[in-house]
Simulated assay, not measured.
Amino acid sequence: MKDLISMADLSNEDIHELLDSAQDLKEKRARGKINEFLKNKSLAMIFEKPSTRTRVSFEVAMSELGGHGLYLNYKDIQLGRGEPISDTAEVLSRYVHGIAGRVNSHDTISEIAKYSTIPVINALSDLEHPCQILADLLTIQEYRNRIKNLKFTWVGDGNNVCNSVILGCAIVGMNIAIACPEGYEPNNDIVKQAKKIGGNVSITHDPAEAADNADILYTDVWISMGDEEEREKRLNDLGDYQINSRLVDLAKHDAIVMHCLPAHRGEEITEDVLNGPHSVIFDQAENRLHAQKALILKLMGQK
């Protein structure tokens, strides 16, 4: 395992190893025990999109592991002036020990990985968001003490996070139900890939059907970055795909509610649910730090 470009780059064993490592690192941090495993190592972080959780969690993770995170806005480096991705990847490979990319196109992060001789992490692309799903699985394990055979329900737009969730659930043996309007389904190739892995994936246009007896209810914004021009259409199309108290009542009595943030209260999720007793959203956000620490350590800590 050199890179993490897709959840499909991970095996079930890889995921459980990362979750165990993340939990250990989280507990050590709580005790104030910080180990400089990555002393004198640097991570170049290429950002084509704005971020709160991704940027902060990667920078803090590198700092607490004894390394250094370099924030590179693509407009400030030669990529923004048309330098070939291959040249940037080869040059950065001579300077730093890893690259994380939050990019517009999945092809960009794939090409960086192709020409890089150092580990590359997909910190978000238009197709997948594997780092988010590692944090999600860590959170589910903390609240359920297991992840296999649970029912994971996604409500809303079948976007990049949804694509990675589908693959992640397939790999670890969770059942996943997707409720989305027609035309907002997740990537068909990824659904096929998940089913080939052995995943139990169902897609419906009925949120109530998907939420029935769910262990986890999950949603994301209806208007992602780049979709702003379609705002009114998306609000209209996705209006019935909101996680609210009525939907929560259809899930198991101890179901947890998740959201990768930022949240638009009153759109994809109601205020009372987001701040209610079922919500684990802010624990989930915190776990981005611990899961990414484990990932960085696995990829960059190798001799």
Results as ranks from 00 to 15, higher is better:
L4I: 11
I5H: 02
S6R: 08
S6H: 05
S6N: 05
S6A: 00
S6K: 10
M7S: 00
M7V: 02
M7K: 01
A8V: 02
D9V: 00
L10N: 06
S11Y: 11
S11D: 13
S11F: 09
E13D: 12
E13H: 05
E13K: 15
D14M: 12
D14Y: 05
E17M: 12
L18K: 12
L18H: 12
L19D: 08
D20M: 11
S21I: 03
A22S: 14
Q23T: 13
Q23N: 12
D24L: 07
D24A: 15
D24P: 00
D24W: 04
L25K: 08
L25M: 12
R29S: 14
A30V: 09
A30H: 11
R31K: 15
G32K: 08
G32F: 13
K33D: 13
I34A: 03
N35M: 02
N35T: 15
N35R: 11
E36M: 13
E36G: 09
E36W: 12
E36C: 07
F37C: 08
N40T: 09
K41M: 08
S42P: 01
S42H: 04
S42M: 12
S42A: 14
L43T: 09
L43W: 09
L43S: 01
L43P: 04
A44L: 05
A44K: 01
A44P: 04
A44I: 04
A44S: 05
M45N: 15
F47A: 07
K49P: 00
K49E: 06
K49V: 02
K49F: 10
K49I: 00
P50S: 05
P50Y: 06
S51Y: 06
S51K: 06
T52D: 00
T52P: 05
R53M: 04
R55H: 13
V56M: 12
S57H: 12
S57K: 04
F58T: 04
E59K: 03
E59Y: 02
E59Q: 12
V60F: 10
V60I: 15
S63L: 08
S63E: 14
S63F: 11
S63M: 10
E64D: 11
E64P: 02
E64G: 07
E64M: 14
L65E: 00
L65P: 03
G66S: 10
G66Q: 11
G66E: 09
G67C: 03
G67E: 01
H68F: 06
H68A: 05
G69L: 10
G69P: 05
L70T: 02
Y71Q: 08
Y71L: 07
Y71A: 03
N73L: 01
Y74Q: 06
Y74M: 06
D76R: 03
I77K: 11
Q78I: 01
L79E: 02
G80H: 10
G80A: 05
G80Y: 11
G80I: 10
G82A: 07
P84V: 00
I85C: 00
I85R: 06
S86W: 14
S86K: 14
S86R: 14
S86H: 07
D87H: 05
D87Q: 07
T88N: 11
T88W: 09
T88L: 11
T88D: 11
E90F: 00
V91N: 05
V91L: 13
L92G: 04
L92N: 00
R94W: 04
R94S: 13
Y95P: 03
Y95D: 05
V96N: 13
H97R: 10
H97G: 00
G98L: 10
G98W: 10
I99M: 08
A100H: 01
